[in-house]
């Protein structure tokens, strides 16, 4: 990927236009993008605004500009600075939703497997695997100091002797450490159908092809059982 002097990836003008059209066709677009007073209330209330050069007002203004060039400048990094807290949507006097616009743009980036989306989703591959293949989000064996530095000073202790610690929990916990709870095969199959229908597997294939293969192996196993 090549970048211009502003750090914006260089792509053909046609693609930029396509991205804008795709965003505009989204069923939520009309509700999220109304008019903008350029008042900055959204930005004043936006948590990441205090840490990064990021402004939901700019997001809405760029979207209102209908200029595919301007909208593209947000696709690499800008949209990923948002916490998706929707404070902006709660306080905008025009009832816009800059956070909602960002959700639309992010979903496009993910569906199309853009570099930025791959980079951002990489740390979540283990969660994606557990979730889509086993219907669990977090399992005991995922608790490792490297991955959860924010869990405090006892994360090291918490991540050892998992099997023993699990047994100490006074309710049925499967006595296993690779799952948090048991999901019946019928339920798993239904989940897979939902993921198929909703295009979740397709998205994973776009952003992480090797993860997709691992998941598909498990899915095939369960489906044929």
């Amino acid at each position: 990927m090549e970048y211009d002097e502003n750090g914006v990836s260089i792509v053909p003008a046609d693609l930029k236009k396509e991205i804008f059209e795709e965003a505009r066709k989204d069923f939520r677009y009309e509700e999220y993008v109304r008019g903008c007073l350029n008042c900055g209330v959204c930005t004043g209330g936006c948590p990441p605004h205090r840490f990064f050069d990021f402004s939901p007002r700019i997001v809405l203004q760029k979207m209102k500009s209908k200029d595919p060039e301007l909208i593209w400048t947000m696709m690499d990094e800008y949209v990923w600075a948002c916490f998706q807290c929707f404070t902006c949507a709660m306080i905008c006097p025009f009832l816009n939703s800059p956070g909602g616009v960002i959700a639309i743009l992010r979903e496009i980036a993910v569906r199309r497997g853009f570099e930025s989306a791959k980079k951002v989703l990489k740390p979540y591959s283990r969660v994606l695997l557990k979730l889509t293949a086993y219907g669990n989000q977090l399992s005991p064996d995922m608790i490792q100091p490297d991955f959860f530095p924010d869990w405090g000073p006892h994360i090291g202790y918490a991540s050892t002797d998992l099997a023993v610690k699990r047994k100490a929990i006074p309710m049925p916990t499967l006595q296993v450490t690779n799952l948090a709870w048991d999901v019946a095969p019928e339920t798993m199959k239904e989940l897979y159908d939902i993921f198929d229908e909703a295009g979740v597997f397709k998205i994973i294939e776009a952003v992480d092809p090797s993860l997709y293969e691992i998941i598909q192996d498990i899915v095939d196993d369960v489906r044929s059982s």
Binding site: C39, T43, G44, D53, R57
Partner: peptide, 11 residues
């Protein structure tokens, strides 16, 4: 007062 100076200061 907390806000965004949309011309000069930013946040």
């Amino acid at each position: 007062c907390k806000g965004e100076d949309t011309l000069l200061r930013g946040p």
